[in-house]
Write a protein that binds this DNA or RNA. Structure first.
Length: 146
DNA sequence: ACGATGATTGTTCGC
DNA sequence: GCGAACAATCATCGT
């Protein structure tokens, strides 16, 4: 089945304006990373540390993978009530995610794309405020004079 | 008891 | 263009 379901055809979006670049093209890029597996322990450390960093910056919307994870987790917990941490689910989900076909992933990609639109607006507002003057949440007590 | 961590991929920003 | 950082979640470990 080389044809894709007409339910959601990202390759064909006549009614919608095509953005500069859509990340919906896995087949275009050929992932050939094998031994270049670098660990990212910072992701966890950053969690709490940068939570405060994005005081004015809009938080990034969950990616398609996260949406799939949300759905996948529910089914996974039901089938595997013994499983406790979500870390294991993430691994299982990640593995399956790679096995998922484009049509299946596209569903979640569509959600993420829509979410990004909202994020884009938030970013515009963020930039706008930034141009006005970068401000941290100054408390009234923290009065500053020049 | 609370805090930090770890793991998943995707997206976005910064330089 | 590449790299670094960060998005949600929660069980578990460490102090």
């Amino acid at each position: 089945m080389a044809k894709i379901s007409s339910a959601s055809e990202p390759t064909q979006s006549p009614t919608k304006t095509v953005h500069s670049r859509m990340t919906l093209r896995p087949r275009s890029t050929v992932p050939m990373k094998e031994n270049a597996i670098a660990k990212r322990p910072k992701v966890a450390a950053v969690r709490k540390k940068s939570s405060k960093l994005d005081a004015n910056k809009p938080k990034k919307p969950p990616t398609a993978f996260f949406y799939y994870l949300e759905d996948f987790r529910k089914g996974f917990q039901e089938q595997n009530p013994d499983v406790k941490s979500m870390r294991e689910v993430g691994k299982a989900c990640g593995e399956k995610w790679k096995t998922m076909t484009y049509e299946e992933k596209v569903q979640y990609y569509d959600i993420a794309t829509e979410k990004r639109a909202e994020f884009e607006k938030a970013m515009m507002d963020y930039v706008k405020k930034k141009e006005n003057g970068e401000y941290d949440d100054y408390d009234e007590d923290s009065e500053y004079e020049e």
